[in-house]
Design a protein around this nucleic acid. Structure first.
Lengths: 216, 216
DNA sequence: TAGATTGTTAATCGATTAACAATC
DNA sequence: TAGATTGTTAATCGATTAACAATC
């Protein structure tokens, strides 16, 4: 492995491998082959092998990869071994769902606090403080927060992004259905439900049409 | 346009165009050029033009596309003009957030009802009934539901998927962080937070490293 | 040894970008 | 007309897949 720069496509497949590797029951063999992984996830085995080659320092012919160290390699590659502090803006239903999600620990993600325009709804949610949005910028500065999670309605997403950037944030996880304009060194990753819905909707349309035609 | 089969990549970009087109203030020109769209969304103009060519029956040189009809074309292409009924399984925080999200109307998505292993928490959430999961299969059959939204914990996602498929569903929107095994004609679209987190995490790591090195 | 599996090198495929002609 | 813009055809780029040699 080491330092080959990884493509976006490979990067996005890694979490899938990781999740599967972790889900393998304890009793099973300590080794796992790319073939097995590929079958389990419905992928091509060559692709899996090539992807793994990017992060692991090698499997053993005839045997496969040591499962534990493969997990470690992927986690290290993804940086899940060091914690990332984040702030969340927008303590509505979705925001609260994310604040309460225990699974983020596994990704090294730690939501420090939440911010809202209207924080009196609750002082704390899921054990985390909810502050007024006026305090956002100073908070980010003080705690050197690098990541912001935006769960406000689309109309306010850009303002919030600007605030975050002013506060020194470097990456934004955006749940609002809006394009954000940011400087080039800031990464925006949008959780794009509209994208998924488009794919689903087009599939269903095709399905319905097919049915009609075969029914004729 | 008409019947050219569209690639996944193009399809996924369409919702972005649509959202932007809808956000243009009423006072503005009735026309919009691919160039303008591209600039607004930070994309290449050739790409935008080619994408639009897939769904629209043409813009006018020197002028651009008629905004209204472009919106219609995209919505029609994506099938947002006819409503899709869906069921949601898992009425936790995330499920409730989705049940309450008004924006789905714009995508022609209508969540008919929700199901949960433990429905006594509330008879209705956001004006929608929450039934026991035992009723899921029959409900899907009766109402000819084609889409299921899974917001249960990962451990139960596969069982739920199996139930949905038994009920005749054709597409699954999966929010659980698990790979689902389904027959080939069923589409699973996973809202993959782990994927986004991986991208964010790797970016931040690089950022941190860079900073350290420049600080040396 | 034979066979399963790895990793690499080459071939294919698809998507993006560039160049250009057509049009209002 | 000149210039902006469209749409198409060709070139480039990157990612996936196939073929194969290496290894335990």
């Amino acid at each position: 492995m080491e330092k080959k720069k990884i493509s976006q496509s490979v990067l996005k497949r890694l979490p899938g491998y990781l999740a599967y590797l972790k889900s393998v029951p304890d009793g099973s063999s300590a080794y796992i082959s790319a073939t097995a992984l590929a079958n389990a996830l419905g992928m091509g085995e060559v692709q899996v092998r090539k992807d793994l080659a990017m992060v692991s320092d090698g499997g053993r012919p005839k045997i496969g990869y040591l499962r534990e160290s493969l997990i470690d390699d992927i986690e290290q590659f993804l940086g899940y071994d060091n914690t990332t502090d984040a702030v969340l803006i927008g303590a509505g239903k979705l925001g609260q769902a994310l604040m309460g999600y225990k699974g983020f620990e596994d990704y090294g993600l730690n939501i420090l606090a939440a911010f809202d325009k209207n924080p009196q709804m609750d002082r704390t949610v899921e054990g985390k403080s909810v502050y007024h949005i006026d305090k956002l910028e100073a908070f980010c500065r003080k705690h050197k927060v690098l990541m912001g999670i935006i769960t406000v309605p689309g109309e306010h997403a850009q303002e919030v992004a600007d605030l975050l950037i002013a506060g020194g944030i470097k990456a934004i996880w955006n749940f609002a259905p809006t394009h954000l304009d940011v400087p080039r060194n800031i990464l925006v990753q949008s959780e794009n439900m509209a994208m998924s819905l488009a794919v689903l909707s087009v599939h269903l349309q095709a399905q319905i049409k097919e049915e009609k035609e075969s029914g004729k």
